[in-house]
Design a protein around this nucleic acid. Sequence first.
DNA 1: GCCGTTTTCGGCCCGACTGTTTTCAGTCG
Length: 570
Amino acid sequence: MLRELAELTVLDEQNPQSFRVRAYENAFSGLQRRGDEIAAMSRAQLQKIDGVGKSTADKIREYFDTGRVAKLEALREKFPPALVQLSKIPGLGPKSLARIRSELGVENLDDLRRAIAGQQLRELPGFGAKSEEKLAAAIERLGLTGKDRRTPIRDALPLARRVVAALEELPEVAMARYCGSLRRFRETIGDIDIVVATAEPESVMQAFASMPMVSDVIARGDTKTSILTASGLQVDLRAVKPEQFGAAILYFTGSKAHNIKLRQRAIERGWTLNEYGLLDSETGRVIASETEEEIYAALDLQWIAEPMRENTGEVEHSADGTLPELVVLSDLNGDLHVHTSYSGDGRSSLDDIVARAASRGYAYLAITDHGEDLAINGVSRERLLEQRERLRSLQDDYPDMRLLHGCELNIAPDGGLDYDQDFRMQFDWCVAAVHSHFELPRVQQTERIIKAMQNPAVNVIGHLSGRYIGQRPGIDLDIDAVLEAAAETGTAIEINSALKRLDAASDVLRRARDSDVTFVISTDAHHTDELTRMQWGTLQATRGWVAKKRVANTWTVNEFLSWANDRRAG
DNA sequence: GCCGTTTTCGGCCCGACTGTTTTCAGTCG
C-alpha cells in the first residue's frame, strides 16, 4: 500500500523528489525494519515506528480495518494501470508524462505510439525531435529494459566481473570495482554500476563504450557512461580520481537509504558527503575520501559490510558498536555439501574433489552425493558403500583434513527420506533437501520440512526453499515454524552458495537473528571449480546478519564433530 | 508526510548527462 502510494504520488505531484513520496518510502522502510506483526497495532503504537506519523498510521489502520485506503483509491482513479505502465518507460518522467497526457490526451502505450508516429511530441515545449526518437527507442526495448526489470545475480555477477577485469587491464585505470546492488549482494539487480579510479577519465570512457558487450550507448559524458548489453542489461561506468575512490564506491554502492543516513550524519557534523569525498561544508576541506573505512571512521561508525547497507538498522548498530561479528571467507574450515561423479549430475571425481578441498586448507569435508530416490542422479546403496571405502582409504593421504562420508537425502512430500534409518545413521553427516513437489500447500510443505528435521540422521536442511532465483519460486513455508523446529531439534539450516539458489534467502536468515538456529555455509559443488563459491555463501550470510559463532563450519574440527555427533546420538 | 536538547515551522542528500534552452528543466541513480 505504501509503495503504491509512493509510486502514484510521484505522478500526482510530478516530482520524483517529492517529500511526501520520501515520507511514504521512509515509513515503508521503518515497517520493514520492524519485521513484526503490525495488523493488530493501534494508531499510537504504529506512530512509534520510525517514519510513521499520524497520517500514515491512520492509513495503515484504515487498510487493516476496511481493506481499502481512500487516498490510494483516489490516486488509482486518477492514474489507471495503463498510465502507470507508461511511467515505467526509461526516460519518461512524471513531468513529461503529465504534459503528453494533458496536451496530447495520451492515456496508454498505443496512444503514445500514435503520438510519436504523428510527430506530435516534438511540438510540445521542452520536447524536440531527439526526445521523440529516444522515447520511440525506449518503447521498442521496453520488454528488455523497463524500469522494473531485474536481472538474477547469477547472470549479472559474471558479466560485472568480466567488465571490471577488462577495465583493470587498461593502463590508465588504477582501480575498478562493481558497486550498486550487486556489491550489496542483492539476489536480483537492476543495473550494473562500476567505478574506476583514473587520472584520464576520457580515454577510459572511450575504451568502455567500445567494449564488445556494448550493444547501445545510452549516455556518454566526461566522467560517466551508460551502455546496454545485447540482453538489455544496463551498465553504468563512473570515473573519479584515485584519491576519491573510497567516497565514490561508498556512494555508488548505496543503498540510497543507507547513503541518506550517512549524509545526515555528515550534516550533523557540519560536513557534506558526496561521491568525491566527505567535505567541510564551509571550507570544502576534505575530511576523508580515499577509502570507505576512513569515511565511516570520520562519521564515528564501524565499517559496515556491503550486504548490510540497506538502512535496516546497520547504521545505528554500527554507531553503538553492536554489529554482529560476521563470517569472512577465511573463517570457513570445511565444506559440508559437495557432490562427486558418483551422483549423476556430479562432474568431478571423488579424488579430484578431495584434492581441491585440501588445497583450500579445509580441516573437514563432507561428501554428500544424492540419495537413491532422486531420479537419474541418485546413488544406490552399493555404490555409496563403495564410495565410503574409497573415501576411507583417501583419508590416509590427507592427515590434516577429516573426510566425512555423507549423503544428500531427498525429502519426500510426506517428509520421508531415502534408504532406511539404519543405513542413514551410518553416514557421518546428512543433508536433507527438497528436490520435487514444489507446489504443495504451505501447511504440507512446513510439515514436510519439520518432519525431516526431527529425524536424528539429518544434520542440516539443504537449500531450504528449493528456489532458483528469477526462474522458480521456492516452496511455500511457515518460516517461523521452521526456524523454531530448527532451534528445537538442533538441525542446522544451510546457506547454499550457488548463485542461482542463495537459499535460505537473506530475509529468512535475518528473521532467525534472535533465535538459536545453527547455520552451515555450503557450496553444493558439483565440480571442483565450484568449491570457490564459498565466497558467495559468506556474503549471503552477511546479508542475513548471521553471526560468525552460529555458523558451524567456522568451528574447529573438534568443535564441529562434537556438535555433529551429539545431534546424531540424539 | 515526518520530524525536533539549534523543535511545532521550515527544513528534508547530491550530482551527471541530455536536450532544449540561451541558463535550465527533466530524468536518473
